[in-house]
Design a protein around this nucleic acid. Structure first.
Lengths: 130, 130
DNA sequence: TGACTGCTTTACGTTTACGTTAAAGGAAGA
DNA sequence: TCTTCCTTTAACGTAAACGTAAAGCAGTCA
């Protein structure tokens, strides 16, 4: 099937229908309608994925909307397209910084783990030697 | 110098004194006092760095506090130490997932860039051929 | 001494991202 | 036809992370 209901998407992505409608209120989604009911296309589904991934990485809904809008208005408009590319590259920079932060935290965690495992083993030896 | 005022830290990390005091209210910092005034040690400074890095990665202040508390209570307590290690490894999992998300977004961005640059060049050629 | 500057506490305000009823309208099954 | 279920819009509520006065104390510079 090529279309989805709001509950389909909610179940698939483990979010509430309220959240999905909220994204629409904020201009992030614009599903078709069948009567009053919302009908989501594959494209809408992709946008939901993009929203969720972006959210997990700390991007605000406003930021995501700006990207979507820019992408939409960049179709055929050369100036907008250049602007879109600029924004994309700034996002890339930010993602790179986050990657660095993650590396630092991972190595911090490694350090703590190594240190604490040494301590745990010491305790064991102490017990054994008693 | 081995100690810092609240404005020292605020300037160094580009945050407001309000934020620093808020972190203290939430139990994330416990600076010494000189009279009524706060005096921050190098250890406090490290904690501020940890807080900010964690925040940039989307961790909540409550989560950060729990880690700090666990770390503090793990000194000499074997059970708490094991618990600390467990939590650390769960954080590591989450960081790994974020890394994946970042990779996906970066490759998405690469795709968009490549695609749009092709379009831009087409336009140029079109103009040249006219 | 008085003004200025910086730090303090207290407390209400604000933004983001939804949660949570509430009220009402199809549509399908017993 | 009645009940049940899913959907809709509308509106108020909430948690997190501070922002923003307000008002007082402490040091210092002229």
């Amino acid at each position: 099937m090529t279309t989805f209901t709001i509950t389909d998407l909610a179940k698939e992505y483990q979010i509430t229908t309220r959240a999905i409608r909220f994204y629409e209120d904020q201009g992030l989604l614009a599903p078709a309608r069948s009567g009053r009911n919302r009908v989501y296309s594959k494209r809408d589904r992709v946008r939901v994925e993009l929203i969720l991934r972006s959210k997990r990485l700390g991007f605000s809904l406003v930021e995501i909307k700006e990207l979507f809008d820019l992408y939409d208005s960049a179709q055929g408009d050369k100036a907008q397209l250049k602007q879109f590319l600029k924004v994309l590259s700034s996002k890339r920079v930010r993602l790179g910084e986050m990657k660095k932060d993650i590396e630092v935290m991972l190595s911090d965690i490694d350090m703590f783990e190594a240190q604490n495992k040494r301590i745990l083993e010491k305790h064991v030896h102490a017990k054994e030697s008693v």
